[in-house]
């Protein structure tokens, strides 16, 4: 029966993200699980290289390293989201952390979290400047490739008071292109969402693969910070 109380361990995301996922043999501190340091170094190097690339540096990540990382992640079998922010000099792999209604929360092993409704970001925590909550269009509205939608973002300022930013957005198709997600190529349809409001303007972009999965997106986080680049590495 469901109502018997049991001791539950503290939920440690080290088992969900980088370290354990990359340790090939799974979670834990079992010495037989193999050398942890290589995949960890690998992931760190890949992420660093990705940041370098995002910042316009010429050195692309070593393809062999990327392939090794992808193989490790696929073997672990968990959905993985890669998140990058140039402004915040932040890059991390995120794994599922919770589900509430239609909203899924992803987290890094450092408990930086990102919540998406239908893959559209509706909240973040731990980035520093965080989106506390949002009114956002549905994925279907975006995927339709046309139309106008309204967005509202809620933030806490330096006095912990809520600030609201409203935008009106126009959705338009932007053609098809090939994108690379951690060493794997996808042909994707790009859709743009141009938003403007009293406080400024920004543009989100979405790449849908041939299976209509949102493979990659750039989504607005907070004024003054570059958009987040989100890549769905493992489904």
């Amino acid at each position: 029966m469901g109502a018997v109380l049991e001791m539950t361990p503290a939920r440690k995301l080290t088992c969900l993200a980088l370290f354990a996922v990359l340790a090939l043999a799974g979670c834990g501190n079992d010495p037989a699980a193999g050398d942890l340091s290589d995949p960890v170094k690998l992931a760190a190097a890949a992420v660093k290289a990705r940041i370098g690339k995002a910042a316009g540096a010429s050195d692309a990540p070593d393809p062999a390293m990327v392939a090794q990382l992808r193989a490790a992640l696929e073997k672990a079998g968990q959905p993985i989201l890669m998140v990058l922010s140039k402004t915040l000099n932040y890059a991390g792999l995120m794994a599922p952390y919770g589900v509430n209604g239609g909203v899924r929360t992803w987290a890094t092993e450092q408990y930086v979290t990102l919540s998406t409704r239908d893959d559209i970001v509706v909240a973040t925590r731990g980035f520093g400047p965080d989106m506390m909550s949002a009114i956002a269009p549905s994925l279907a509205q975006i995927a339709a490739g046309h139309g106008t939608v309204q967005r509202r973002y809620y933030y806490l300022d330096g006095a912990d008071q809520t600030q609201v930013f409203a935008f009106a957005c126009t959705i338009a198709p932007e053609g098809s292109e090939t994108i690379a997600i951690l060493g794997k190529a996808y042909v994707a349809n790009r859709i743009g969402e141009s938003c403007s409001g009293p406080s400024g303007s920004f543009k989100n972009q979405y790449w849908f693969d041939s299976r209509h999965i949102l493979r990659q997106s750039t989504q607005f986080l907070v004024p003054g910070v570059d958009d987040l680049l989100l890549q769905r590495v493992i489904d």
């Binding site: 939920r11 952390y97 919770g98 589900v99 509430n100 209604g101 929360t105 987290a107 450092q110 408990y111 930086v112 979290t113 919540s115 973040t124 925590r125 731990g126 520093g128 400047p129 965080d130 506390m132 933030y155 806490l156 300022d157 330096g158 006095a159 912990d160």
Partner: peptide, 20 residues
């Protein structure tokens, strides 16, 4: 600007998600 933290909203790690 004492009323406003220069970095805006507070940092620190995210919370546990609500379990339904």
């Amino acid at each position: 600007n004492a009323p406003q933290r220069p970095r805006g909203g507070i940092g620190g790690s995210g919370p546990e998600p609500v379990k339904t």
